[in-house]
Design a binder for these strands. Structure first.
Lengths: 208, 208
DNA sequence: CCATGCAGTTAACAACTGTTCTCTGTATCT
DNA sequence: AGATACAGAGAACAGTTGTTAACTGCATGG
């Protein structure tokens, strides 16, 4: 089935991945709109012109990064939302999942948070589309639970969007707390948990 | 009292303001981290070196923009929150206020949304501090209403932060809908209203 | 009324940028 | 085994950037 790539294509993908990883690293202290292609190739140790074999521009690179970073996250979210358990358990699990994800992939989270409203239109669009997909997936998972009885599709999508945005904000808060003492991280955990809990309470009393 | 500035200082402030306005304009299609000082001075029609008479760097300019854009907004928020009326009225008024503000100052909103998680640390910090102030002000206004009975200060601040973030997200949604048909704007209005309403319902049932 | 301070100018600098064209080596295909 | 496709290198381009220094003109304060 999965055809083993030739030496040639394998090397190409390796370089391509190196360019993307280098870009993510460089984006720690700047925005995509100021990322230069020479800067990226220099970090990888490859000639500037090699960049064009993989991407038309840094904006193009950015779009590819969005697919990589958010595309792989859909199954994770589906998993999380489809787990059984009461609402408080789910919230706790979600917050912890986010915390661990930020620990493991801080550059990913930073990139998405930064470029969601960033200065590069195609990248903004790519992120927006991915987030819409997340909201739709969360919405369809919510619909399966009994608490969703009586909810129309539109309201469910509104709630799902609220959850998605809240998760992203939580991730961003954890990111800011990365270099700070453990105490700050637990403060963020408590805050995010309470926010989600308040939203859940709103959800339970929505139909009145 | 308010001393009329000399011709000299007046002209200086005028140039300074021109630099800030030009920067806001240029930031429509890029991030602050890629904004060049020459670019700004060129837009104003002034020599590049004149920039240094007003700002140490474009990052410095950015911080000044944050003060101008958000600093002037505190009384507006206070006004909004201190008005009497039931919760639904307040929500409606808030959403409409945001819609009108985005119409009047789209560049302001874009700047804050973009640079809140942008690539320039001092600017991020300035925005974060202003948003904390907003949350504190909203919190202290909430405390005056009877619905806040039984709430501890920490939970009130959590709620206020949730409101502040929601307002900013709403503003950003209106911004994206600016060049789109009227229909899209009303969709955003409905969405934002329902989100705030759900949060309000959560608030009313929090103490159980 | 004259001396001072200072907003803005001019010129020059080394360093950097994206993009082009040409070339090279080697994995792949026939 | 030879022809071909193609990832990456190399060199050169015009244009841009931030920063420096020394200047000019004029509003201001003594």
């Amino acid at each position: 089935m999965s055809h083993t790539l030739g030496v040639r294509q394998a090397q190409k993908q390796k370089t391509r991945q190196a360019l993307m990883d280098a870009a993510l690293g460089l984006l720690e202290e700047q925005s995509l709109s100021s990322l230069g292609l020479r800067e990226v190739t220099r970090a990888v140790g490859v000639a500037p012109t090699a960049f064009y074999r993989h991407f038309r521009s840094t904006a193009d690179l950015g779009v590819a990064l969005v697919e990589e970073v958010l595309g792989s996250l859909h199954p994770v979210i589906r998993d999380l939302m489809s787990a059984v358990g009461d609402s408080d358990e789910l919230i706790e699990r979600a917050v912890e999942l986010i915390a661990r994800h930020v620990d493991a992939y801080p550059a990913h989270v930073r990139f998405i948070a930064r470029e969601r409203h960033g200065g590069v239109q195609p990248v903004r669009k790519a992120i927006r589309e991915q987030l819409v997909r997340f909201a739709e997936e969360v919405s369809s998972e919510l619909a399966k639970h009994p608490e969703a009885e009586g909810w129309n599709e539109d309201d469910l999508l509104m709630l799902a969007g609220l959850y998605v945005d809240q998760m992203l904000m939580t991730a961003s808060l954890f990111l800011e707390a990365l270099d700070e003492p453990e105490e700050e991280r637990t403060r963020v955990t408590r805050l995010a948990t309470r926010r989600l809990r308040l939203i859940s309470i709103g959800r339970l009393n929505w139909l009145d």
